[in-house]
């Protein structure tokens, strides 16, 4: 059986909010190492991959592999009943028809309990090759969101060009062009404001802004975002979850090719 307790319901609320624009139904795969999720959007352009490690929960127990097939809009309805600071416990039997969610307020003596019906989802798992990316950029997540939203006013696509000079996000559309260039800099007092660029060779790729803006719904989950690029392979956009236990929310986006 699965029994996992999260100190803050907010984490699951935000994860589900961040991915529900891309995916309708998906399996939450539970095993002794934690809860994982991998799903592609309908058009096969973007993929979301989440890992919530057992260490993110206290306690966490899952004796065997359990797939929880969940409709995300139904889960969103149930999670609306959880206050952000509630303690959230997920429970399921070994071959479950439902997942049980309990929300507890630490201040008030209130316990809310919901059973969400599960569905059979026949989902193929994709192998994501370990990639040595040519460039990786670590930057404030709110800055990345701002850039994507601003450039979406200009065009539906953005080119991301990374050289040793910095990273340039550029868009060209009917009304004109726009670009934002970030140079590497470290902020000692506020490390979350630093921009770090790790480059082995220059990269230039184009991506759909509609998807990138969708990914940035994860902004409130982490102060930093990491973009990893290599020419002609999908972009990896990664948010670290719940501080230092290697839990993550990753998005992959297929590039636009040929101009």
């Amino acid at each position: 059986m699965l029994e996992s307790r999260l100190e803050q319901a907010d984490l699951l609320k935000k994860v589900v909010e961040a991915i529900s624009g891309l995916v309708n139904d998906c399996n939450f795969d539970c095993n002794d190492s934690g809860i994982a999720l991998q799903a592609m959007d309908n058009s096969h352009v973007a993929l979301v991959s989440m890992m919530l490690k057992a260490e993110a929960f206290s306690p966490y127990r899952c004796d065997r592999n359990i797939a929880l097939g969940i409709n995300l809009s139904s889960l969103t309805k149930v999670l609306r009943a959880a206050q952000s600071s509630d303690i959230l416990t997920l429970k399921a039997e070994d071959a479950p028809d439902v997942v049980n969610l309990v929300f507890e307020s630490s201040e008030k003596d209130r316990i809310s309990e919901y059973d969400l019906k599960l569905m059979d989802i026949d989902q193929e798992h994709l192998g994501i090759p370990e990639t040595e990316y040519a460039a990786s950029i670590s930057m404030p997540s709110n800055e990345f969101q701002r850039i994507c939203k601003d450039l979406m006013n200009i065009s539906e696509s953005v080119s991301i060009e990374c050289t040793k000079e910095g990273v340039k996000f550029a868009a060209a559309g009917d009304i004109g062009t726009g670009s934002v260039t970030l140079k590497q800099h470290s902020n000692v007092d506020k490390p979350e404001q630093s921009v770090e660029i790790d480059l082995s060779e220059p990269v230039a790729l184009s991506f759909s802004l509609k998807y990138l803006v969708n990914f940035t719904k994860a902004t409130s989950l982490a102060s930093k975002v990491k973009l990893s690029l290599s020419n002609e392979v999908p972009l990896l956009v990664e948010y670290e979850l719940s501080g230092g236990n290697s839990s993550y929310l990753r998005f992959y986006l297929a590039p636009k090719i040929g101009d």
């Binding site: 592609m40 096969h44 993929l47 193929e124 994709l126 192998g127 090759p129 999908p234 297929a254 590039p255």
Partner: peptide, 14 residues
């Protein structure tokens, strides 16, 4: 104009 590629070409089913 640039064509949107699909992930299937990059990631194969396990």
């Amino acid at each position: 104009t640039a064509q949107q590629s699909r992930l299937d070409g990059f990631f194969k089913p396990k």
